[in-house]
Design a binder for these strands. Structure first.
Lengths: 206, 206
DNA sequence: CATATCCGGAACTTAACAGTTCCGTATATG
DNA sequence: CATATACGGAACTGTTAAGTTCCGGATATG
């Protein structure tokens, strides 16, 4: 096991592979995706944005579809720690507590990414699943916690269709952003809560 | 002005141009758009579907973007005769009256077209305007009529945010179709009305 | 029935981009 | 400090589709 056979020379794989830049590339991919949509997105653009070589991108992801899938899947929302959500003691308080600039910006970015891939989603079940898990589900999960708490404390009737109520907020935001192309603001979100969601839950506004 | 100058020979423009096939081409464009999305749509595909030559398409529309814009703009909903809407005497009755297979199919097709162009819309204001006028506005207009009637007959309080209430239905349908990718059915639409829209309007279901 | 015009269709040109290969350089390892 | 490896970057290949041109045939007009 001494000299030849390159047992020492070849397997110098001390650095294995530098996955240091992966997050930057994925993040760049999301940026370009949000800005130009799936088909407008080129690998050159992504590589340039991440200050990486195109070859480096292909060393890690075998195709554009692969890269996009991974980028979407790795897109962690920054607010979805279900165990540390605000707990104000009322449904309205909890819902309002989520109306904050960071949360709004987060959701806007997600919507832009979503807009960039909607047309792909119909023909790519894997991507559809990733998008659902990363973009749709987290938001619903937060609302689900709030509604469950309200039910537990007897604030609302237990017979409510929680699943449906959870999608009212996201649906209104998505519609306004994607279809109406009006940016969401604090006022819109609060009136959503007071005029639609709470009445549907059998509550008055305040 | 007699013989030459081709005053007789050249301007044989008796048939001008055969715009007979325009609707078929536009309809084919919408089909392909709904099935494959903007970028997946090729002019060859559209021409083949309309049994027309590619050249014929370009004789009428100068570019793919042009064709798509026109196709979307010409997309008349089949139900939007605001003067002949069902009038049942109650808000719930009017809303429920719109829950019919043809209306559902119409809205599904519109949503598919919308899905095919969302990512373009952000970078093409003209297309955005056309899409809004053809896909978003008609639906809202119908609801607006129903709510105005309800206000006029004193069924609901006049202080309601009608604009917001008008988008609840479309928003829920769009969200379910585009994000959740679950087809809408009669039951979903009715529970939307009874559990969300009517309570938000200050009414009980039935 | 002669002819100008538009049709469908096929062949063509051009541009963009996915994916590959190559190279000179930086760096971590021994 | 020698070297293998992975890097960024540029050059290359192949394919796809936008847009153009050309042609033979149909049709309406006079």
């Amino acid at each position: 096991m001494t000299q030849t056979e390159q047992a020492e020379a070849r397997p110098r794989l001390g650095r294995k592979r530098d996955h240091t830049r992966d997050p930057e590339i994925l993040s760049a991919a999301l940026d370009v995706l949000a800005e130009t949509g799936y088909d407008g997105m080129t690998i050159d653009l992504v590589a340039a944005r991440a200050k990486a070589g195109k070859a480096t991108v292909y060393r890690r992801w075998s195709s554009k579809a692969d890269l996009v899938l991974d980028a979407v899947a790795c897109m962690k929302g920054n607010d979805l720690d279900l165990d540390h959500l605000p707990d104000t003691g009322t449904l309205r308080g909890d819902l309002i507590a989520m109306v904050k600039p960071p949360s709004i910006r987060d959701s806007e970015r997600k919507l832009k990414v979503m807009a960039g891939i909607v047309s792909m989603i119909a023909r790519n079940p894997e991507l559809a699943a990733a998008a659902h898990k990363a973009l749709v589900e987290p938001r619903a999960a937060v609302n689900r916690v709030f509604f469950q708490r309200a039910i537990d404390r007897g604030e609302v009737l237990p017979g409510l269709d929680v699943e449906k109520l959870c999608m009212v907020g996201p649906a209104m935001v998505a519609y306004r952003t994607l279809m109406l192309r009006i940016p969401v603001d604090r006022e819109f979100l609060i009136s959503n809560i007071d005029e639609i969601i709470l009445p549907a839950a059998g509550l008055r506004a305040a």
